[in-house]
């Protein structure tokens, strides 16, 4: 895999698509309703929630299995879960 510098950040080129740069994106799993998304990083937790129009009071953001705070910067290589904390009963 070849890497190039784009706007100060390193971008990976997939060898399978010559000349075409595919930026990898972080995998984001949102619960309730369950959705899987790909969002290009880097981005801060609070920006990610804003971008998806989610109320911060109703969600937690988990990277791997660690809770992360609002100002944490998330990278393309991260696997993120946005977990709803609201229960219905």
């Amino acid at each position: 895999m070849k890497t190039v510098e784009v706007g100060g950040s390193t971008v990976h080129c997939k060898p399978a698509c010559p000349g075409l740069m595919i930026r990898p994106a972080m995998k984001v799993l949102v619960s309730n309703p369950r959705q899987e998304l790909e969002v290009p990083g880097p981005t801060r937790v609070q920006q990610l929630l804003k971008r998806l129009d989610l109320t911060p009071e109703a969600y937690l953001v988990i990277r791997g299995d660690e809770l992360v705070a609002e100002d944490t910067v998330l990278e393309d290589t991260d696997s993120i879960e946005i977990r709803s904390v609201i229960s219905g009963g």
Partner: peptide, 21 residues
């Protein structure tokens, strides 16, 4: 709040059902 409780559960690896009834 629910968020504080869920945070405690995540930190202490309490494996609960995330999906709703």
């Amino acid at each position: 709040t629910e968020r504080e409780i869920a945070a405690y559960a995540v930190i202490h690896h309490i494996d609960y059902i995330v999906d709703e009834c």
